[in-house]
Amino acid sequence: MKVFRSSADVLSLNMADEGLSLELTLDTDPRIVSITRRFVEQAMEKLVDDADAVFRVAMAAHELLENAAKYAENRQACLALRLEASSSGGRQAVLTMMNQTSLAHIERLRQNFAEMNTRDDPYDYYFELMRRNPSDISVSGLGLARIRAEGEMKLAFDTVGTQVFIRATAEIPERRPA
């Protein structure tokens, strides 16, 4: 981990509006992934009184960062997490993963998103992917579908050249009373 702007213990000092905005520039060493997930979990626990929602966001952070660990070209990725007001009047957690990758991987992502967006039911699609080549242990292919199904998150994808951005958004239940 090269840079961080806040630790879980001082998050309250960095609160603005809905409470949390952090950005981590990370080495894509696979050993960093679980460390980062635990950090996100601890950060969310300070501000969200719903352990299930905390799990959903931390799990998504893990899956996105692990994708970057596998496919980032320059061994560096940036993970941003914001807790913000949602259009429905509640709060939402927005995770954004940014990293450089190959054009071939961008094309695979584009195909994955195109297919996923034709499937209305996140769990049906998750099970469809589980049934697809179950004996192939070389690749999971489940990460994004898991975020969408188990994480109940909306996913979006964009690119600028070989820079890829994946955004996952989760609705967060009401905060605990002060």
Partner: peptide, 17 residues
Amino acid sequence: EFINSSCLKAFVTWISS
């Protein structure tokens, strides 16, 4: 404590077997 999607896939492979 936690399982990622790759290890979850390992269970899918086993169950499919």
